[in-house]
């Protein structure tokens, strides 16, 4: 069979196609504008505050916070009630979140997340907010709890065979 394909690049575009392409393009431009606009106007963004931190340093900062503000223990894990506005450290390691945090409703905290070993996922339930936790990186979430209750922190990045048992707790009073 001889193959002879017409060259198409100078052929005029059909009207139906033209209308559709314009609609698609306008929709894409709308989405394109929406993304930065909502970033500034909507204020529901993931944090972009991040620092390098060694696991040793982060462990030390966490230990210091636990010593200062420890108020009890829950399932063998220290419970900490840091003062509003302070820097709060939540340390991830296979397969545990340390410590349990106690927050006050309506107050703002700077929550630092980092890992001692492998990558973990910070998944706050049942609110359902999800952020990555990497070793060597300090990810700072500035958060203000708006409702009281007990929230679980589920690990949702695979971190080893015991991954499913990695559950932490945040209590808001």
């Amino acid at each position: 069979m001889s193959i002879n394909v017409e060259r198409v690049w100078w052929k005029p575009v059909d009207k139906g196609e033209k209308i559709w392409i314009i609609i698609a393009l306008m929709w894409a431009i709308f989405l394109f504008v929406m993304m930065p606009w909502w970033h500034y106007y909507g204020k529901q963004n993931p944090s972009s505050e991040t620092y390098k931190v060694s696991p040793e340093k982060f462990q030390e900062l966490t230990n210091r916070m636990i010593e200062q503000y420890k108020v009890g223990e829950d399932a063998g894990i220290p419970v900490v009630a840091p003062p509003p506005g302070s820097d709060v450290f939540l340390l991830a390691r296979q397969f545990q979140w340390t410590p349990v945090l106690k927050f006050k409703k309506g107050e703002t905290y700077r929550l630092h997340l980092s890992s001692m070993d492998v990558q973990h996922g910070f998944s706050l339930q049942p609110t359902n907010m999800n952020f990555m936790v990497l070793p060597g990186y300090d990810y700072v979430l500035t958060m203000t709890p708006t409702e009281t209750g007990t929230f679980e922190v589920v690990c949702n990045e695979f971190c080893g065979i015991g991954h499913h048992a990695m559950v932490g707790k945040i209590i808001v009073e």
């Binding site: 679980e152 949702n156 990695m166 559950v167």
Partner: peptide, 23 residues
Amino acid sequence: SYGVPRRHWDIAFSGAPFGVEVN
């Protein structure tokens, strides 16, 4: 949409220090 994680063996979270109430 109920927050069920991907790549997760057990959403009953057996062996975890705290229970998680999944919808």
